[in-house]
Amino acid sequence: MSAPEAAALAPTARPARRRRRIDLLLWFCGAWLAVLILAAITAPMLGLQEAQDAAKTLLEPVYQPPSLGSTHPLGTNALGLDMLSRIIYGARVSLTVSISAVLIGTFVGGTLGVIAGYLRGKVDRVIGTLTNTLLAVPALILLVALATVLRPSALNMALALSLVAIPGLIRVTRANTLAFAQREFVTVARALGAGRARVVFRELMPNVLLSVVPMCLVYVSALIVAEASLSFLGIGLRPPQPTWGNMIGEGLNGKMEDYPHLVYVPAAVLFLTVFSFNLLGERMRKRWDKREVSL
């Protein structure tokens, strides 16, 4: 028997332990994402050092370690390019690509999932087979295969990444649709003479899409990692265009040992961002579950 049991049995009243703490971590993550997104949007106006064009940094020091007060607070790379500036321009790419991929994935996957869950039967089986087909090829292999066919542009990258998110979103929206379709409001809508399309798009879609928002946040973080992985492998967006993945890749081949900041700076930024999206998604899901229970 465990200690709390013993405590519960001891004939002494235990005061209710319920602290309403402010979720510091959540605020920290939110703040980080806000700063990052803001910096990414306003990057050209921030007066940053050179991030891409090595011809302009011939006179800059190379491999300078981070030093917060200097002109290169996060240091420079092999070509004298400013790391801070590269991080922020990298964020533009990472965030744009992964967020648009999730939006595309949610739209396509959500529509297919709701249709499969509501219509069931043959349509469900066809969509299910498609889902399984996409799942049968591991995400990275799928991306590698696509990368060999598609030119490495941001748009193509977003489209390819959305294919990774689609099967999971189909499964979850389908499951949620099955659950929502049992609820009274669908019956009511049908009783009021709503057609299938109306039920799917006006009644089910809004509810189901709202319920997958936490999962979408987790997908944003997964796709940031996927995009970085491709760049790391050298088959994503290519240098000189900076991305977090190809920045980390620059530290390979023994350079990391001498200039650890080449790896640690982008790795830390990548970690913080991925962690923040994950945490946001997780907290939202918990809220959601509680709401569902109390309904």
Partner: peptide
């Protein structure tokens, strides 16, 4: 929701956010 549970959950949550090429590089270092 005990102490160990929260510690384990925080740790796994952190690990979850580390891409393999980063954890690999850290392990190598």
């Amino acid at each position: 929701d005990g102490l160990l549970d929260r510690a384990a959950s925080a740790t796994t949550f952190g690990i979850m956010s580390v891409p393999s090429f980063v954890s690999g590089l850290v392990l190598i270092a």
